[in-house]
Every structure is written in structure tokens, then in C-alpha cells.
Computed example of a mutant assay.
Amino acid sequence: MIFAGVDVGSLSAEAVLVKDNEILAHSMITVKPNPVTSATLVMDEVLKQTGLNMEDISCCVSTGYGRERIPFAQYDVSEISCHGKGAHWANKEVRSIIDVGGQDSKLILIDENGDLDDFMMNDKCAAGTGRFLEGIAKTFGIHVSELGDLALKGQEAIPISSICTVYTQFDVMSLLADGRTKEDIALGVSESLATRLNKMVVQLGLRDKLCCTGGVAKNKSVVECIEKVTKKEVVSLGDTDPQIIGALGAALYAGEMHLKQLQKEAKLEEIM
């Protein structure tokens, strides 16, 4: 049987197909204004990769901000639980997860089965999210995916004092006008983001092992800064793209929920 998970976030949408507890295929796109459109497009893409149709999918679970509106999903599960489930699949030792999303960030604590134990979300400010990095990249005139490599070339991090994304962009423009390098500013931005994320760590605590999920987890500079401020190693998720972890967790939940439904139906048949 094949199970699907689709994750519609504020910046990107991902879809994952799982068969026999292994990833069959995955896809990701930039979100469209309508979450249903985003989910449909990313699911169509992953089905196209495999030559499958929706009729071939035994069960689909949606997650993310638009999860309750996806018409082809049988169930929806919070992105917090899905990131926990997906990260645990990728690395069974993981117990703490920092998920830096486009609109918010979360610290998630899970048990040995990958089930949610506790979590905390950042305050309603983009300075601790992927949108913060996106704004800085736009100021530099580069794609956000290039920001991490730029920061790794920095020699001396420029302190970023503003906690507002808009003000930070003005600060960055002023620093550039003063002759400061993009590399040093980018490194300062990474440290600023990691410092804001660490506020959740101080309040909730961490368990070994720690991993990062979401698109920002691909930013090596941010990951290094998280290790620096938390004094914890960020462990690898192996070959699994950290950006698809939410959709992967949703697909894994789809498998569990489908099995429970089959068991429920079997019990009803016995009674009848």
C-alpha cells in the first residue's frame, strides 16, 4: 500500500509518498495564494514522478497551515506532530527538533516512539523564521538558498540588534552603505536568528539528540550558530531532505491511521 503526506506551509508546499515504510517519492513547490491549489499542484507533481494516480493512494494526511482545507486528504494532523514523526523516522535517536518555518519556529520534544511530548512556538515575530532570512536575502539581491554559503565566508559577525524584520532590513542597508561586507552581515544574521531560537530552548529545555527541520535547516551557517548558542550538536537526518520532514511525518501518520481503520472495520465485522 502507498500512503501520502502533503504539507502546505506559508512559503513552500511538500508532498511525500511512502511505501513499505520507505520514501517512494517526494516533491516541493513554492506556495500559491490558495492552499488547495498548492496541495493539488505538489501532489500532482509527486504522482507524476511515479506514474501513479490518487486512486492508487490508500490514505492521505495533510498538515501545515492549510491542512483542514485539502479535499483529497482523509485526515489532517498538526505540523508539530508530523515533524516529530518524520524526524524520528529519519533518525531514531532524535528527541529534540528545532523547526524553522516560513511564518513561525517551533521547538518540539518527542519520545522514543517519535510521539509528541512537549513543544513551544516562537512569539509572533518574523525575526525567528525563514521569512526573516528571505527578507535579508532580498536586500542582498540574492536567493535565500545562497544566504548560508555567504555567511560561512564571513570573518566577523556584525551584531544585528533589531528584532523586527523590517527594521533589520534597513539596518542591513545602512551597514552596506558603511562598507561592511555582505558575508559578515550574513553571519550576524545567522547568529541573530539562532539567538532568538535559543530563547525557546532556555524556556523548554533540550533532550539529546537535537535535529533541525524545515527549509532553514539547509542553511549550514544557521545550523552552526544553533550549535554554538545551544551548546548541542545538531545531528544529521541522513539522506532525508529536512524540508520534507513534515510531509513525511504526515505520510507515516496516514499509514498508521489506515491500519487503525482497517482494524476497526475488522472488529465491526466480527461483532456483526
Rank of each mutant, 00 (worst) to 15 (best):
F3R: 08
G5K: 02
V8F: 05
D20C: 04
E22C: 07
S27K: 13
P33V: 07
V36W: 01
V42E: 03
L47W: 07
K48R: 13
L52Q: 11
C59H: 14
V61N: 03
Y65I: 04
R67L: 01
I70D: 03
P71K: 01
S96D: 03
G101W: 04
G102K: 02
Q103D: 04
S105P: 10
K106Q: 09
L109H: 08
D111G: 10
N113I: 01
G114T: 10
D123T: 15
G128F: 08
R131G: 07
I136R: 06
G148Q: 05
L150R: 04
P159N: 01
S161Y: 08
S162N: 11
I163S: 11
V172M: 09
M173N: 13
L175W: 09
G179Y: 09
S192A: 15
L197A: 10
K199E: 13
V201M: 05
C211K: 04
C212G: 02
V216Q: 00
S221Q: 06
V222I: 14
V223S: 01
T230P: 10
V234T: 08
V235R: 09
S236L: 05
G238W: 08
A250I: 05
A254Q: 03
M257T: 03
Q263K: 14
Q263N: 12
E269H: 12
E269C: 04
M272G: 13
M272V: 12
